[in-house]
Design a protein around this nucleic acid. Structure first.
Length: 725
DNA sequence: CTCCACTCGTGT
DNA sequence: CACGAGTGGAGC
């Protein structure tokens, strides 16, 4: 009996799992990991040959199988990546096809490089040439390139070069090669490390050499030189001829990181983030897949790139919330990085001055190694932290900066030093309300307040992007000019600074003003040249910069973020304030940090005043233990959304009734999600608490299979949720 | 998600 | 009986 071979293909399709196909008609052999195009219905779909299909169930008869259309000319996805994709789909309870799309994110990357005509001097040029043409040909010499590139290199006009090509003096060849990748040099400029740094670097180098899975928390206070330490492990990977991946939380404000990399290794690394053009994407993707890119730096999506020989993963600022993807496939890139390290059998370094509690607990339990840098690099000292009690020294009405803070900033700028005001709130005012009737201006699509932005003279919704000119008439009571801005955003603080510190040269640092790496570089330049001496910014301003002359940091509202009932509120406040404070006094000059608060006796602030990180983490861990919260208990959220409010609620109640049962298992809800209306969709959520040795993903996927789908209600799964919106 | 077959209501 | 909107199911 003959047996038609079956290929199990995972389709890069948001709804589907693996399907079976017959081999391509040209009979070319396919192996797991090969990227293929297959027919699906009346169109085609990208897919990857998954494992060999000898044991798959025949849902479709052999004779009914359709054949793979083509195999794409790219290296196969290696097994560790396929394992990671399988794991991610299973753990986060997502469709495997949706997860595969993250690895094949760019269709452009899979196309062959476009060939281009490249010109060079012919081996036997025509004898008779005018003197001008002969000189031009001589100038070209042994160079190759496009007409435009040759014109640029030689100074000869492109018209003259074209006529040389017509005469046969220049010959054209098709060239398909991508521009080569710059090769970082591990010995370009060795840095001098402190003994403590060197010891940790040596350990990481040994981990790289062991070629085995080992996660390590690189736990160093702000300004202790973590980057230089992990650069040494990266250098070892380069010496090995392998590949290193560095994940950074936000690619926008990381110019300084790239400068440091270039200073250490003599050239820039390969970048991967959402702003790349199709050509850049293809060039990077192929270089990574073919093993030609020794170091790749990227945002969280870089985690799913098809490395040929991955020997090290670094997750810098591992506590950052932006590693948690909230839409599409919700995953935590830091956790996936550790899993990838396990499949790739390579070390994973999680670096932070303020680790996530989860990570720190794993280090305490010795699941992760724990490398500590307890002092700042060189002469730098930790800044002194001071509370300003807003009840005792309240700011004037419609002001948010207290007299002591203004005085401290004034003195600081007077000394020729620089300051930073931190307020994690974009825009001018978070709330606009009518003085007559008290109506708050809400987003028509979402259950949120619209935020006034004076930079755009509009009210913006920070959740759906809705924007409208600032109305003059209250839409509720129709009174004119009664709408007032309530509360401060960074724009309003900037306005106040103009009044109270008229001599300050201030710059706003938010995602609204720093929209591109170029703008970020401009700002850096302005601070370095002291054209700007006061930064007023959101958390964007606190990320990893080194301004040696910055000595005074003011946290405008240290209580912001402590309300709201988010289980990570205290941890996040601690991290943000520590990172903001960490900008102060990073060189010889000592730094000062002022925290304005209505609640100065909060234990969080006591820990910040004393630089008592361990104390904070112990207290936070004890709280989470007591309230049975993560990481000691596992959560999963189910979010139901749809246009029809009643249908959404009914479906959610049906789910709640069918929820998993057992000791330590609880289902809460349905409750309106904090954003109960988002982009015009009503949202309701269920929260699963699991306290015990259960596989949460299994509980949730079983649960899903017990309840029939509802066409008009979307169910999103969020395992280990961060946002409670 | 996309396509398609099918139903049901409207209108001529 | 023709047509369009709406709905449900399959795709290998």
């Amino acid at each position: 009996m003959t047996h038609t071979p079956r290929l199990r293909i995972l389709l890069a399709h948001p709804m589907l799992g693996p399907y079976d196909y017959a081999p391509p008609l040209d009979q070319s052999a396919l192996k797991p990991g090969d990227v293929v195009e297959v027919p699906l219905g009346r169109q085609t779909c990208l897919g990857v040959v998954w494992e060999d299909s000898s044991h798959t169930v025949a849902a479709v008869a052999d004779t009914k199988l359709r054949a793979v259309t083509t195999k794409l000319n790219v290296p196969p996805l290696r097994q560790p990546l396929r394992q990671l994709l399988d794991w991610t789909a299973r753990y986060y309870v997502q469709k495997p096809g949706a997860v595969l799309r993250m690895a094949l994110s760019s269709r452009a990357a899979l196309e062959d490089a476009k060939t281009c005509l490249v010109y060079g001097a012919a081996a036997n040029p025509p004898a008779a040439l005018t003197p001008k043409r002969a000189a031009a040909l001589h100038a070209v010499g042994t160079r190759y390139g496009s007409i435009a590139a040759l014109a640029r290199a030689t100074g000869v006009t492109s018209g003259l070069l074209k006529s040389l090509a017509n005469e046969g003096a220049l010959v054209a060849t098709q060239d398909a090669r991508d521009a080569p990748i710059a090769q970082p040099n591990p010995t370009s400029a060795a840095t001098t490390l402190s003994p403590a740094q060197q010891q940790i670097a040596n350990g990481l180098i040994a981990d790289v050499q062991s070629k085995s899975f080992k996660p390590t928390l690189l736990d160093g206070i702000t300004g202790s030189g973590k980057t230089e330490v992990y650069f040494e492990a990266v250098a070892q990977v380069i010496r090995n001829g392998g590949q290193a991946l560095v994940l950074l939380p936000e690619i926008a404000m990381t110019r300084q990181w790239f400068d440091r990399f270039a200073a250490r290794f003599g050239c820039p690394p390969v970048e991967w983030h959402s702003d790349l053009t199709a050509t850049q994407r293809r060039r990077a993707w192929r270089a990574i897949a073919e093993g030609r890119a020794p170091v790749v730096v990227g945002a969280r999506s870089a985690l799913f790139l098809p490395f040929a020989d991955l020997q090290l993963i670094i997750v810098d600022e591992e506590h950052e919330q932006s590693y948690k993807q909230e839409d599409g496939v919700p995953y935590q890139a830091r956790d996936c990085a550790v899993v990838r390290g396990r499949f790739e059998a390579c070390p994973v370094v999680l670096a932070s001055a303020t680790p996530a509690l989860e990570t720190r607990v794993n280090a305490e339990k010795a699941k992760y190694g724990w490398a500590k840098l307890a002092s700042r690099y060189g002469a730098a000292q930790l800044p002194q932290v001071q509370m300003i009690d807003l009840r005792a020294t309240p700011p004037a009405s419609q002001h948010w900066l207290t007299q002591p803070l203004v005085q401290a900033l004034d003195d600081c700028l007077e000394r020729g030093e620089q300051g930073l005001l931190f307020l994690n709130r974009r825009g001018y005012a978070p709330l606009t309300l009518c003085r007559t009737c008290g109506t708050r201006v809400n987003c028509p699509q979402c259950s949120t307040w619209l935020v006034e932005h004076r930079l755009t003279s509009r009210l913006h919704c920070h959740h759906c992007g809705f924007a409208t000119p600032i109305p003059r008439i209250c839409m509720s009571c129709k009174d004119e000019n009664t709408l007032v801005a309530c509360g401060p955003g960074v724009e309003r603080i900037a306005e106040e600074v103009k009044r109270v510190l008229p001599k300050a040269r201030a710059a706003l640092v938010t995602s609204d003003t720093i929209s591109s790496p170029a703008r970020a570089a401009e700002l850096m330049q302005a601070v370095e040249s002291n054209a700007v001496n006061l930064l007023i910014g959101t958390q964007l301003a606190t990320k990893g910069h080194h301004f040696p002359n910055l000595t005074c940091v003011g946290v405008v509202d240290a209580d912001l973020g402590l309300g709201g009932g988010d289980l990570r509120a205290a941890e996040r406040s601690f991290q943000q304030i520590t990172q903001a404070a960490g900008r102060a006094g990073r060189a010889e000059k000592p730094g000062m940090v002022y925290l304005q608060s209505y609640n100065p006796t909060h234990p969080l602030f006591a820990a910040l005043l004393k630089h008592d990180r361990d104390g904070f983490y112990e207290q936070e861990a004890a709280n989470r233990q007591r309230f049975r919260a993560p990481p000691f208990v596992r959560y999963a959220a189910l979010i139901f959304s749809g246009k029809d409010k009643a249908a959404v609620e009914t479906h959610a109640r049906g789910f709640a009734r069918a929820g998993p049962r057992g000791p330590g298992i609880d289902v809460f809800g349905p409750a309106p999600a904090a954003l109960s209306l988002l982009r015009g969709l009503h949202r309701v959520r269920l929260l699963l608490h699991v306290d015990g040795p259960y596989a949460v993903s299994q509980l949730v996927s079983d649960w899903l299979s017990r309840v029939p789908e509802h066409k008009a209600v979307r169910v999103q799964i969020d395992i280990d949720p961060y946002s409670f919106l």
